[in-house]
Computed example of a mutant assay.
Amino acid sequence: MENEIISGLDSYLSFRLGNEKFVVNIGYVKQILEMTTITKVPHMPDYYKGVINLFGDVLPVIDSRVKFNLEEKPYGKSTCIIVLMISNQDVTAKFGLIVDEVRAVLQIADEQIKEPPEIGGKFKNELIHSIANVDGEFIIILNVDDIFSTDEITLVNPNQP
């Protein structure tokens, strides 16, 4: 799914976590929700905040700050949930990703996209698909399909095959 979407679409949803800017290919985004009450589920990883009711379906919700090893902070009025469709090997699932703020939809041309650096850093390299240079500012393009392992997807989506 990743290669098809990344090469076929040049539109990306941008969002902010603290001072860092990220984008995900718009092909993964199903909708954007205002922050809502999350029902906690016991014995789950710290980044798994619980579930919400999404039009009668159960949607697992992940705190991106915790998942990406950033400092946790209270949710604010601009905090929202991006609903993403993720595919990892033979497993496909919807997730809600809590972000500090959704910014805009950006058009990013292929020539603006560079390979991620090979060095270690603040973020796990497998989460980074590439780096975009937009108006002189670097923005991280997330590798959406690799945010979660197959085991993590089945842990929080037990009804998946």
Rank of each mutant, 00 (worst) to 15 (best):
P74V: 09
Y48D: 07
P60M: 05
V23N: 01
L54P: 00
I26T: 06
G120T: 13
G96W: 00
D151T: 02
V23T: 04
V58C: 08
G56L: 02
V41T: 00
L84G: 01
D110N: 13
V24D: 03
P161M: 09
M1N: 12
I5A: 04
L70H: 05
N3M: 12
I153E: 02
R16W: 15
N69M: 11
Q31K: 12
D57S: 08
G96E: 03
K114I: 10
F68M: 10
L155I: 06
T92D: 07
I98C: 06
N69L: 13
P116T: 06
I139C: 02
V105L: 02
E137P: 04
V156M: 09
I147E: 07
I139H: 00
E126R: 14
Q112H: 07
L142N: 03
G76K: 08
Y75H: 14
K21D: 13
E111L: 10
D46G: 12
V156F: 11
V83Q: 03
D100H: 02
T36M: 15
S11E: 15
F22H: 00
L9G: 10
I139D: 00
I98D: 04
R65Q: 04
Q107C: 11
G120W: 14
V24M: 06
E4Q: 08
E111I: 15
N25T: 02
M1H: 14
P161R: 02
Y75I: 10
F138I: 15
K94C: 07
N3A: 15
P42T: 00
H129P: 12
I82G: 01
N88Q: 08
L106I: 04
T92G: 11
S87F: 10
D146S: 15
K40W: 09
V102T: 05
N19T: 15
F68P: 05
F22C: 00
D100N: 03
T39H: 08
G121H: 04
I62K: 02
M85K: 10
N125L: 09
L33S: 07
K21W: 10
S149F: 10
I113M: 03
E101M: 01
D135W: 12
P117H: 12
P116D: 01
E4P: 05
V91T: 01
S11F: 10
I141P: 00
I108A: 05
I119V: 11
E4A: 11
Q107H: 13
G27L: 04
I147D: 05
S11G: 11
M1F: 15
K77C: 06
N143H: 10
F55W: 08
N19D: 12
K21E: 15
V24Y: 04
F68E: 05
E152F: 07
L13H: 01
I98R: 08
I62R: 03
